[in-house]
C-alpha cells in the first residue's frame, strides 16, 4: 500500500482537499455586499466521491453551499522533510539560519543558503529574525511527472500595527505596576 497526496485537482465539492483552514463567520449585513458583489451564477456540481467496490453506482454527495471548482490542475508537493528556519545572518550572496526539524522538534540545525535559492518576491523579507519554512519533497505535475524539490517559503504575517504596539505597551505597563517597577 502506498499513501500519496491526491492526484486530482482540488475538488471543492469534497469539502476540503489536502489541507484546508476554514473559519465560519456570522457575517453582519453590511459585510455581505462586498463579498457577493460582481459574482455570477453557475450550477452546483455533484461530488465526485463514489461508493466502494462491487460495481456499484456512484453516490453523489452534495454540500449545503455550492462551491467553486478548479478549472486547472495544479502541481502537488509531498514533503519528505520540513523545517522552520529563523535567519541569523545575511551576506551579499548568502544567508544563515537556525533550523527546527518539524518532524523532530528537539533537533536544531544550522544551514547557509545561497540567496539564489529564494524566490525573487521573498528576497526583501530576508533579514535577521525573518522566519521561513523549508520543505524537501517531491513535486508532481498534473501530467504525472515527478521531481525532487527544495522549497523555501518566507512567512508573511500582518505588519506591526499601532494597536499591536499600544497593546504591548499596555501589557508591559500592567506588568511593571504588578511588580512595583
Amino acid at each position: 500500500m502506498t499513501t500519496t497526496n491526491t492526484t486530482r485537482p482540488l475538488d471543492i465539492n469534497s469539502p476540503y482537499s489536502e489541507m484546508a483552514v476554514t473559519p465560519a463567520f456570522d457575517i453582519p449585513p453590511q459585510a455581505r455586499s462586498p463579498v457577493s458583489a460582481n459574482v455570477s451564477t453557475t450550477a452546483p456540481r455533484n461530488d465526485q466521491m463514489t461508493a466502494l467496490g462491487h460495481d456499484r453506482p456512484y453516490l453523489p454527495v452534495g454540500l449545503p453551499v455550492p462551491l467553486p471548482t478548479h478549472t486547472e490542475a495544479q502541481p502537488l508537493f509531498t514533503a519528505l522533510q520540513k523545517w522552520q528556519g529563523t535567519v541569523s545572518q545575511v551576506t551579499d550572496s548568502t544567508f544563515s539560519a537556525v533550523l527546527l526539524d518539524l518532524l523532530e522538534p528537539s533537533v536544531e540545525e544550522v544551514a547557509e543558503f545561497d540567496l539564489e535559492e529564494v524566490s525573487r518576491g521573498d528576497l526583501d523579507l530576508i533579514a535577521p529574525g525573518a522566519v521561513f519554512y523549508w520543505s524537501i519533497g517531491y513535486r508532481t505535475e498534473p501530467s504525472g511527472e515527478r521531481s525532487r524539490s527544495s522549497v523555501l517559503v518566507f512567512r508573511r504575517l500582518p505588519a506591526w500595527s499601532e494597536k499591536d504596539l499600544q497593546r504591548a505597551t499596555d501589557n508591559a505597563k500592567e506588568l511593571r505596576n504588578n511588580f512595583g517597577w
Binding site: 522533510q81 536544531e108 547557509e112 543558503f113 524537501i136 525532487r148 527544495s150
Partner: peptide, 24 residues
C-alpha cells in the same frame, strides 16, 4: 547531522552551502 532518507540528504547537499546539527 541527523540520519535522513537519501533523497532528503541529497537535496540538503544541493540546496545549502553548509548544513550542521547543533549539539543535542
Amino acid at each position: 547531522p541527523k540520519r535522513r532518507p537519501r533523497p532528503v540528504t541529497k537535496t540538503i547537499k544541493e540546496a545549502t552551502r553548509r548544513f550542521e546539527r547543533l549539539s543535542i
